[in-house]
Design a protein around this nucleic acid. Structure first.
Lengths: 361, 361
DNA sequence: TTTAGCACTTGACCTCAAAGAGTGCTAAAA
DNA sequence: TTTTAGCACTCTTTGAGGTCAAGTGCTAAA
């Protein structure tokens, strides 16, 4: 990219940019006169009108009705955002402040992400999202079985990613402490390192065999392992600042807002959306670029959070299509870097092994 | 109560009930003519008008403006609800279906409550809430320390209530397996059974003393304990069906809706509200009966979930003041019973020490 | 290629009158 | 004493009509 002009004259670009920014700010169609007043250009409104008519024909602008000003089309936003992305791809300034805001009692990733989402929301005035996304190929690194009473024990699992999960297991019959210790031993030696799809029936039968008269403990335990793996696989999705949606007239249509809220709550669609990012850096989905229909009038900006090259979370914001992309991109990039610094200790940006080389624009 | 008439003639009660139900259904002021048409009463509209005028003077009805019909006042709803509460206080039927709906992959209380909230929302068409409420006097029953690597370990804590919580602990220096075992031993003997406010400095210093050269492990561990206790203390609050709020014109005022969403998201106020129920059975807060100002036009119906006499959660719904209390009360009671059955195994309804008796409706 | 000017279109907004719903009150009926 | 019919009154809702301002497209001149 870099010098790719997109087929637009320099003046058209300026006008397009002016229209987009004016519309983002005001929310209303932008007329030729307004552009002239902002004197970014030295020409008359008639000239602007001609240019705008062409921009409309090219698909960058739209006209709600004959005598209204112009509004950016999806393509218009896309053009605008692409130019911004170049600009912000490698921003790392101003992060000090965000670092400070995030630093409060943060130790677990979940908490970091949730706080980050709140932060993103309050800094941008849109709705923030935080996701612990679908992580395929989770394996277990370590098990510990903790007795609660002789019919219940807690299963503590540490995944390859370092996440700790616990699950209470209720056994069909009373067990002895020895049986539990033996089970722990076996699971640690047999199951560790396996993914969900590698724990097959033969392995389970072998376990039952090895447990002899305590075979009844195997099934509930394995079930717990499965459940945890699936839980991790599902991911968790949290929003903050949902009420900020209401600040924008775009969502004054009750039906539309209702649909959006419903979709957001359902989680599945959104999770799928962000679990499969196009870029490892910042992603921007404008309107119908998102496969979720109800988001046709909205935009979604998000950024995967990586640790040692693996995606461990996502942060972002959701808002109207006429989102203040400038502010949002900046904020999300900064928060992203800040989180990376936090969870990776010093070496925040390690050279990716297969992430396709360099990323300095 | 039972036969307490509330000072109203039987006819006034009938009229009040008719007005409330008509308004709940239609959302609009109810005129005298409408009441006549529903022929629950055999008298003319003029008579109804006289009665309604009196009901208004008594404070049970309100008139939005001179030539509109009547709308129930808060007092009117309260009267209506109180009569319903009598009716539903001991319902236990129809629970079979709810039982089935809840039975999917339910093992942990968190999951049960969240699913119950969704269920409540979809059955009533209002917004469902599920809460693991503020539980003061949490103590720890058991600790287990699981090594991750020589600078990190996971702390597994089982509370007096049987909840299992884990916390990752990062140590300021590398530690030996022996040190960890020793720490585990000490914590289990010293901290178990203590509440958050009983872990005092002398105790911590004693621990450090006992750990000798491994004293550096004590502080991070104790910090983790504190964090878990506070977490439990805070409770967790989940909503489902937020979009259903939009089905009601009461929330078409954007500003109002925004405030409500903000309050709901903030959690603190709502948690406090439901953590201190007036009744162990079903609670109904109508409009300004709730101390949360933004809920003046809303109603909150909730029911504590008890296990062995201790409150372990809350389920309920939030909706407009003109809520279909009949349906909601029935639904919440039924879901509540269903959950109780589930988490208590067989003896779902233990003879309350102070819950007062039988319940075969 | 740019600009000035003008006719035209369109949604936003205001006013006004009519319609409709529901009341309170009075006087007659039960 | 209670209920009912009838009527005048009040207030909101709705729609038509008219004005206004914004912004355009187009033409002709610079």
């Amino acid at each position: 990219m870099g010098n790719y002009t997109g087929g637009l004259s320099e003046r058209k670009k300026l006008i397009l940019k002016a229209v987009v920014e004016a519309h983002i700010e005001g929310g209303e169609p932008v007329g030729s006169k307004y552009i002239v007043q902002s004197n970014l250009l030295s020409c008359s409104s008639a000239t602007i009108r001609n240019e705008m008519a062409e921009l409309e024909q090219l698909g960058y602008l739209e006209q709600p009705h004959t005598s209204a000003g112009r509004v950016p089309s999806e393509l218009g936003y896309r053009f605008y955002v692409d130019s911004l992305v170049e600009q912000y791809a490698n921003t790392t300034r101003d992060i000090v402040r965000i670092n400070q805001l995030l630093k409060a009692k943060m130790s677990e990733l979940d908490q970091i992400l949730e706080t980050a989402s709140k932060l993103a929301s309050s800094l941008t005035n849109y709705t923030g999202i935080a996701i612990k996304p679908k992580v395929s190929s989770v394996t277990m690194a370590k098990f510990e079985l903790v007795s609660i009473d002789n019919r219940n024990f807690a299963m503590v699992m540490i995944t390859s990613g370092g996440t700790v999960k616990t699950k209470k297991v209720k056994t069909p019959a009373a067990y002895s402490p020895d049986a539990l210790a033996r089970l722990s031993e076996l699971i640690n030696s047999q199951i560790c390192g396996l993914g969900a799809d590698m724990i097959t029936l033969p392995i389970i039968m072998q376990l039952e065999n090895d447990m002899a008269e305590n075979a009844f403990l195997v099934n509930p335990a394995i079930k717990a392992v499965y459940e945890v793996m699936n839980e991790l696989d599902g991911g968790e999705l949290r929003y903050s600042g949902l009420n900020r949606l209401l600040d924008y007239p775009e969502y004054s249509d009750t039906q539309h807002l209702s649909n959006l809220l419903g979709t957001l709550e359902n989680q599945d669609e959104i999770l799928e959306l962000v679990s499969d990012p196009q870029s490892d850096e910042i992603n921007v989905l404008i309107g119908s670029e998102s496969p979720v229909k109800v988001m046709n009038n909205s935009a979604l900006v998000f950024k995967p959070i990586k640790k040692n090259g693996r995606t461990v979370g996502v942060i972002g914001v959701i808002g109207p299509r006429r989102m203040d992309y400038k502010k949002v991109l900046k904020t999300i990039v900064e928060i992203g870097v800040s989180i990376s610094n936090m969870i990776d200790g010093e070496r925040a940006l390690k050279q990716g092994e297969d992430n396709g080389g360099d990323d300095n624009g």
